[in-house]
Design a protein around this nucleic acid. Structure first.
Length: 639
RNA sequence: GCCGAGAUAGCUCAGUCGGUAGAGCAACUGAUUCGUAAUCAGUAGGUCGCAGGUUCGAUUCCUGUUCUCGGCACCA
């Protein structure tokens, strides 16, 4: 039988017997064969050593390609598993995929792995790489695989095959050397030596079998892996950089906020941090004022009866804070929507009133699981830049487009240009009929298309009352943060019986769009701190200019300068301490003050100031009036 | 919530094989008036997370607990 191979450039070659990818590569050039990681056969990634038993489109995937990197990482997971089983006999293997930066593998073992174990395991991995064990693919029948893993004491693997695969189905086994194997879809590199050395084990953690908290707890070992040493180094440097920017460190260091045991999951905002907060809040308020929103404030405590109507009592009771008073059970509001519906329902609404955009800087409380709390990023008390747009079904499109415009422009003002959109559709547990969901998903889909933003699907991740768009922004060092959201809700207006009078005098249900740009103020400020590493742009900086005299003779003039800056709307202060100018410069630089205005005898005489910007050693001497004008213009918040 | 690790001065950390703790920085006081990233000297600061237990004696050993950190699960 003859096999015809078609190369990407259209050339064809015939073989008498099924050739392997490696043989074809060698036929082209030994150098190429060396660089090859896997091959693409009719669009599918195959092992280099797998005989190609059919006519096929064929392409060699070299080590430097993204698809190859995933194979490298997956190989690393298998080498990790082998190393662990060699070092710790009796440990059961489960699964270990590639991740965005490396790999992990989940193990079942009574003893916990320690940090010290990681070093040993990593050393053994390097040894296995050095052994350069051939990796071979085999196809096994279902029952043979079950029998094998059961005999080997691999209960998790056996269970997976028994319950996850059909009896007739063949499955693939990858052998690493003669003594170790794992069930795997592949593909893999031809031998462990091809993995290279650019990997590192990073942490141990818990994980649940099949990702379900009701199942056995496994131990997950994480690693990072790259195609080259340089990429590994770069990534480690990025991690270091991220650690330096950690808002949980910078927050207290820069005197922005702190957290403590007596108010777990809540934030004590200090004067500087709250200045940052107000700057952000006021900016958003101006943007909302300019785009047709009204701002309201709703009660913190609302009777459980309301939450029963909305469905929150049923769905989220265990995460709500409860208060009791005079035989009433009240819930601290976990969200603002019902309150906004109650405001909407005051008075009869006409179609002429729609769309009605009700906004609130809504303070909410949710009793998040203790293990979920994380600095400002996940708290129990937070404030959303929330709004609900009550509109007709026809208005969903235009409102979505307007919201996307607003959101993108706000993100840009904060220095985020790279924004991705995810579309989350119906979750397994939900309110409302399939018909309503069809309608809501359809409306949202056509709306986001009208907005012209590309999006990816996030199946089953919608809210219980409706599908949602999630807006994810990428920060300065490449991390992603979900912030904004837009959710279509046909359910809540129904449950709380909101209505409007249509043109034909009939009573209709409005659609409710839940939307937030920043998400939670707390979280967004945390992201801002990390984005800027605490060195905020001038308009956001809590303290914008520090006036530092060189000699005490200039103290009086320093006061004048600070007053002039404050009169122009800048946040300025003086540092009149009897310290050397070097000391003051250092201290205010460490505290990330964007502008230090130095005044000495010369400036006091000439009525000038010498400005020094954070991150630059350059000095600029300007007449006071001009300096004030320049700084005031620069410090103005975006409109 | 689950698995694992941790908690010593405001911060970063050292230390005590059981005999109530130490450094640097910060703070405070004094001297220094010095032109762009740390002036010098001195002082003060800790029921060693909290509660029990063992012990003549516990910051140290044991138990429980709270919180933090790393994962997982959760995230209206």
């Amino acid at each position: 039988m003859s096999i015809e191979i078609t190369f990407p450039d259209g050339n064809k070659k015939s073989f008498d017997a099924p050739p392997t990818g490696l043989e074809i590569a060698q036929g082209i050039s030994p150098g190429l064969a060396k660089k090859a990681a896997v091959v693409r056969v009719n669009g599918e990634l195959w092992d280099l050593s797998r005989p190609i038993d059919r006519d096929a489109r064929f392409e060699i995937v070299t080590r430097d390609k993204p698809e190859a990197l995933e194979v490298i990482r997956h190989d690393a997971a298998h080498v990790l598993a082998q190393a662990v089983q060699e070092l710790y006999p009796g440990t059961q293997i489960t699964f270990g995929p590639a991740t965005d930066t490396g790999f992990y593998y989940d193990f079942a073992r009574a003893e916990p792995f320690t940090e010290a174990d990681l070093e040993k395991i990593e050393a053994r991995m390097r040894e296995i790489v050095k052994r350069d064990l051939p990796i071979r693919r085999e196809v096994w029948p279902h029952d043979q695989a079950v029998a094998f893993f059961e005999k080997a004491g691999e209960k998790f693997k056996a269970e997976w095959i028994r319950e996850g695969l059909k009896p007739g189905e063949e499955l693939t086994i990858y052998k690493q050397g003669d003594h170790w194997l794992d069930m795997c879809l592949g593909p893999h590199l031809p031998s462990t030596g091809k993995l290279g050395t650019a990997f590192k084990l990073t942490k141990v953690g818990g994980a649940y079998w099949r990702g379900d908290a009701n199942n056995a707890q496994l131990q997950r070992i994480y690693g990072i892996a790259f195609a080259t040493e340089q990429e590994l180094k770069d990534y480690l440097r990025m991690l270091e950089e991220a650690e330096k920017r950690d808002h949980r460190k910078l927050g207290p260091q820069l005197d922005l906020f702190h957290q403590q045991e007596e108010a777990v999951g809540s934030v004590f905002w200090h004067a500087k941090g709250y200045t940052l907060w107000r700057t952000v809040e006021n900016y958003i308020r101006r943007r909302l004022d300019a785009t047709g929103y009204v701002e309201v404030k709703t009660p913190q405590l609302i009777d459980r009866v309301l939450w029963e109507k909305t469905g929150h009592w049923e769905n989220y009771r265990q995460n709500m804070f409860i208060a009791e008073s005079e035989d009433r059970v009240l819930a601290v509001k976990p969200m603002n929507c019902p309150g906004h519906v109650l405001i909407y329902k005051q008075g009869i609404k006409s179609y002429r009133d729609l769309p009605l955009r009700i906004a609130e800087f809504g303070s909410c409380h949710r009793n998040e699981p203790s293990g979920a709390l994380h600095g400002l990023m996940r708290v129990r008390a937070f404030t959303q830049d929330d709004a609900h747009i009550f509109c007709t079904p026809e208005q969903i499109n235009s409102e979505t487009v307007a919201f996307c415009d607003l959101l993108m422009s706000v993100y840009k003002d904060f220095g985020f240009e790279d924004v991705r959109v995810k579309f989350s559709d119906r979750p397994p547990q939900r309110a409302g009929s399939d018909e309503v969901w069809d309608k809501a998903e359809g409306a949202l889909k056509s709306a986001i298309e009208a907005a012209g933003l590309p999006y990816t699907m996030n199946p089953g991740e919608g809210a219980f009352y409706g599908p949602k768009l999630e807006f994810v922004l990428r920060d300065a060092i490449g991390r992603d943060w979900q912030c904004g959201t837009l959710q279509v809700d046909f359910v809540l207006p129904e449950r709380l019986e909101a209505e409007y009078v249509a043109e034909d005098n009939s009573r209709q249900r409005p659609v409710m769009l839940h939307r937030a740009v920043l998400g939670s103020l707390e979280r967004f400020l945390g992201i801002l701190i990390e984005q800027h590493a605490g060195a905020f742009p001038l308009w956001l900086s809590p303290l914008q200019a520090m006036v530092a005299p060189i000699v005490s003779d200039a103290d009086g003039y320093a006061g004048e300068v600070a007053e002039a800056l404050k009169a122009a709307g800048l946040r300025a202060d003086t540092d009149l301490r009897n310290e050397k100018i070097n000391y003051k410069i250092r201290e205010h630089s460490v505290h990330k003050v964007p502008v230090i205005a130095v005044v000495g005898r010369k400036e006091a005489e000439e009525k000038t100031v010498t400005l020094r910007r954070l991150g630059s050693e350059q000095q600029q001497t300007l007449p006071l009036a001009e300096a004030v004008k320049v700084l005031a213009a620069e410090a103005a918040p975006p409109r």
